[in-house]
Amino acid sequence: MGFGSSALARPTSDDPQHLERLGRVVLVDRPEAPNPGWVAAWCGDVGYELVRTPAVPDALLDGGPHGDAWPEVAMQLGALSAAGSSVLLRRTALHERHGMRVVAAINDLTDDETVLTEAVACATALGASLELVHGVPLSFGERSVGLDDAVGRGLALLQSGREYLAGLAGATATGISTRLLRVRPHELVNELLDADLLVVGGARTEPAGRLGLVALSAMQHAPCPVLLTPRRPR
């Protein structure tokens, strides 16, 4: 289910410099692979420039790099994200079909504003549903002090994200679902994820910006294409 063209508005921000940096999508894919049609449609609708990276290790596209190759790859993609680009890691081919699902992992609405707006734009381009997910660690234990607060905060966060997107799309939240899971945030994005596209926050747009644990785990373990969206500076 799509969300209508009004969902493709550029992210709102009170930081003009932050907004100016949100205008490029870097596609990480095999050199011989054509640009996916839905990516070109997404970039065209929102006015983004679509570029491709130089060759990357095959291990990155075949299931996640390990050993000596991994730190260098993570640093390169982190630098692209910190420079303000959205980075699309197309590890596996995304076959457009009926009933597709885009999953967006969120932890904080201020930090993850671009996660929400880019996720709904991609869902629109794919004609897919969108699910917002948030994790509360099992380490709290069922009787731990603070568990109820953490669960309540997570549920409120997901509801706020859904309401934000419903307002952005200018329609009801039909087609946008939410799910709270009892896992650590980086465990949301592992090989058990049921998604056709995963959207997570990338690096902060600042000189020292680097990828966090969720983004690194997604690049290594998610069984689907991963979109890293830049986050605003601290």
Score class of each variant (00 low, 15 high):
residue 79 A to N: 11
residue 53 T to K: 01
residue 52 R to D: 08
residue 203 A to E: 14
residue 127 G to M: 08
residue 169 A to C: 13
residue 173 A to R: 06
residue 178 T to M: 06
residue 53 T to Q: 02
residue 95 H to Y: 09
residue 44 G to K: 04
residue 190 N to V: 09
residue 57 P to Q: 05
residue 15 D to L: 15
residue 125 A to P: 05
residue 124 T to L: 09
residue 159 Q to S: 11
residue 203 A to Q: 14
residue 75 M to E: 15
residue 23 G to L: 12
residue 219 M to H: 07
residue 82 A to F: 09
residue 161 G to S: 00
residue 187 E to C: 03
residue 3 F to E: 13
residue 14 D to N: 13
residue 139 S to Q: 09
residue 166 A to L: 06
residue 232 R to Q: 13
residue 220 Q to T: 15
residue 207 P to M: 03
residue 65 P to M: 11
residue 36 P to R: 07
residue 27 L to E: 05
residue 72 E to Y: 06
residue 162 R to N: 12
residue 84 G to E: 09
residue 100 M to L: 15
residue 126 L to C: 10
residue 158 L to D: 03
residue 198 L to T: 00
residue 173 A to H: 10
residue 19 L to E: 13
residue 129 S to M: 11
residue 199 V to Y: 02
residue 150 A to S: 09
residue 72 E to R: 05
residue 118 E to L: 06
residue 71 P to I: 13
residue 205 T to E: 06
residue 168 L to W: 10
residue 97 R to V: 02
residue 128 A to V: 10
residue 37 G to N: 13
residue 208 A to V: 10
residue 132 L to N: 03
residue 127 G to I: 07
residue 107 N to M: 00
residue 149 D to L: 15
residue 114 T to S: 05
residue 143 R to W: 13
residue 203 A to F: 12
residue 28 V to L: 01
residue 113 E to K: 02
residue 207 P to I: 01
residue 163 E to C: 06
residue 199 V to P: 00
residue 211 L to D: 12
residue 84 G to K: 12
residue 90 R to A: 13
residue 220 Q to C: 11
residue 58 D to G: 00
residue 112 D to V: 00
residue 12 T to M: 12
residue 37 G to K: 11
residue 161 G to M: 00
residue 1 M to Q: 13
residue 207 P to Q: 06
residue 188 L to I: 06
residue 168 L to K: 09
residue 94 L to E: 09
residue 32 E to P: 03
residue 215 A to H: 01
residue 46 V to L: 12
residue 138 L to F: 11
residue 206 E to Y: 05
residue 155 L to S: 07
residue 220 Q to Y: 03
residue 42 W to V: 02
residue 36 P to S: 08
residue 97 R to S: 13
residue 120 V to Y: 04
residue 177 S to R: 08
residue 233 P to E: 04
residue 126 L to Q: 14
residue 168 L to D: 03
residue 130 L to A: 05
residue 212 G to A: 11
residue 131 E to S: 08
residue 101 R to I: 04
residue 14 D to I: 10
residue 69 A to T: 08
residue 97 R to C: 04
